[in-house]
Design a protein around this nucleic acid. Structure first.
Length: 490
RNA sequence: CGGGGCGUAGCGUAGCUUGGUUAUCGCGUCUGCUUUGGGAGCAGAAGGUCGCAGGUUCGAAUCCUGCCGCCCCGACCA
């Protein structure tokens, strides 16, 4: 195996090679679609499990709605479909037949669907058309529903995990009796996302509100969490939408409130996707491969035996197996790679590429001295310690690594988040280092679009914790009362 | 859909301008021996409709025409 391309020479080639070489995913035969390999899927399963637990803890329950949606549902809410119309896959037929050549198949023109079906780009329409039947009274509210599913958006340009035609996600869809409750729900989920992504994935984020131009077409307010990647570009890591009564009105979902009056239901929707995998990779990893936070690493410790003879191998593997059992009993995820098909050096490099946080090696000398060699993936630090101290050291390191990679990411995030007050500097920074540029904006879509056209930078969000501050728009010079976050985005 | 590029073994490629033995090299794969504390070495082997179809020619990976597919840049986007 040859080394990866370096981040400095070609960030994009580095990313693509890393995803493939670490065994996370590969391109499928259908353009834009992705095969998620077991190691990549194991990371996604860890994320799913953490998020799902947090959803349940806040009173949400899971359900499942169909992949195929009648086309007519989309006409009900014109504002919403505008955002997706250009990227919907459509099912038009339900049967194939053998072609005249006798070996290939073709669409049977006789099997044309009376009503075409849309492969869901998101599920608001089918869910709200169902909620109409579920909700009559305030006693039926709130509905706090989530589903784990796949969606299809026919993207023009795709990249593994960051933007694929089909992707996996979770979509929460809630219905409430009051505006306040719906608004609180959207914010609650935003904060929940931010906390989990920070605490488990070790990714620092900016929380904020999308501008009218950037928000979800069916929402009153779109809240977002934005990450900053190593190449200085921003990535939207999750969104929570306060839908107001828009979908309730589009699908005529009403209820009788406690005062006995009919009102439209208030809604939210919120989601995170397999794109988070891309953020994880692009934030922590280095030129030697992936670096995974211990809390979501499928393998936290990999054990590698080093030996010359069969007798040594048997003794060392037996010792490692015992140690593995001890660590596993303590809840640590350990893999013992006792395969004789690869040499230790190869294994070292391979597991570094896969981002395993701690490597534990035992060779003949260690066996003799009752020691183990431990190595940290994030710093490459190596120590040899008595085998009896192993559990304590591994436990300490897992915590240390988790904290360290978060602190490291946070430092870079802060260094690259800068105040900018003149447009020349703004353009220079965007074109060179990228990063989050905090600048004044006059609040108009027109200015937003002009800046995008000239610099490719978009307003990522209006930060939630931003202080009011008088200033003048970086582009138009008009007055502004707060800074917004600009960046080039994926 | 507009502009540019590319299709040769599982992957990456040379050869094409100027047609001519058995289509090049590396990685990977397989076999054997030696190795094993940072991506092993040597020897041998297998693996090809040169994207598809047609044309020119004594002869096409190479030249011509058509088609198909993919990649990059632009519009779109979690």
């Amino acid at each position: 195996m040859t080394p990866l391309p370096t981040r400095a020479s070609n960030f994009s080639a580095w990313y693509n090679a890393l995803v493939v070489r670490a065994g996370l995913a590969e391109n499928a035969s259908v353009r834009g679609c992705m095969i998620i390999k077991p190691y990549g899927y194991a990371i996604w399963e860890r994320l799913q499990s953490v998020f799902d637990g947090a959803f349940k803890a806040t009173g949400h329950v899971n359900g499942y709605f169909p992949l195929l949606i009648p086309k007519s549902y989309f006409s009900k809410e014109a504002g919403h479909i505008e955002g997706f119309a250009k990227e919907c896959a459509v099912v038009t037929h339900y049967r194939l037949k053998v072609a005249e050549d006798g070996c290939s198949v073709e669409v049977d023109p006789a099997a044309k669907l009376e009503e075409e079906l849309i492969v869901r780009p998101t599920s608001e329409t089918i869910i709200w058309s169902t909620y109409k039947n579920w909700i009559q009274s305030y006693r039926d509210l709130p509905i706090l529903l989530n589903q784990w599913s796949n969606v299809v958006r026919w993207e023009m340009r795709t990249r593994l995990f960051l933007r694929t035609t089909e992707f996996l996600w979770q979509e929460g869809h809630t219905a409430h009796a009051t505006q306040e409750e719906a608004q609180a729900e959207a914010l609650q989920m935003l904060h929940l996302y931010e906390r989990i992504i920070r605490d488990y994935m070790a990714i620092p984020l900016i929380k904020g509100v999308k501008t009218v131009h950037e928000r979800f077409a069916g929402a009153e307010t779109t809240y977002t969490i934005e990450a900053l990647l190593q190449d200085g570009k921003a990535l939207q890591a999750g969104t929570a939408h306060y839908l107001g009564q828009r979908f309730a009105k589009a699908f005529d979902v009403t209820f009788t409130n406690q005062a006995g009056l009919r009102d439209y239901v208030w809604g939210t929707s919120w989601g995170i996707t397999t794109r988070l995998m891309g953020a994880l990779i692009m934030i922590h990893s280095d030129d030697d491969g992936l670096i995974l936070p211990p809390k979501i690493a499928p393998i936290q410790v990999v054990m590698i035996p080093i030996y010359k003879t069969k007798v040594q191998r048997a003794a060392i593997v037996a010792q490692l197996a015992g140690l593995q059992a001890t660590l596993v009993a303590q809840g640590i995820r350990v893999k013992l790679d006792d395969s004789d098909l690869r040499k230790p050096g190869y294994k070292f490099a391979a597991y570094e590429q896969k981002g395993v946080p701690i490597r534990l090696a035992v060779g003949p000398n260690d066996l003799e001295n009752k020691t183990v060699e431990l190595s940290r993936r994030d710093t490459k630090e190596k120590i040899t310690i008595p085998i009896d101290h192993c559990f304590q050291q591994v436990t300490d390191w897992l915590e240390t690594i988790q904290t360290h990679i978060y602190q490291r990411a946070l430092r870079i995030h802060q260094q690259r988040t800068v105040l900018v007050d003149d447009y020349a500097t703004f353009k220079k920074l965007i074109a060179s280092k990228g990063g989050f540029l905090l600048a004044h904006w006059d609040g108009t879509t027109e200015t937003e679009e002009k800046i995008k056209a000239e610099t490719k930078a978009t307003i990522r969000c209006i930060p939630l914790d931003g202080q009011e501050e008088l200033g003048s728009c970086i582009y138009s010079g008009k007055p502004s009362i707060r800074r917004v976050v600009f960046a080039q985005a994926y």
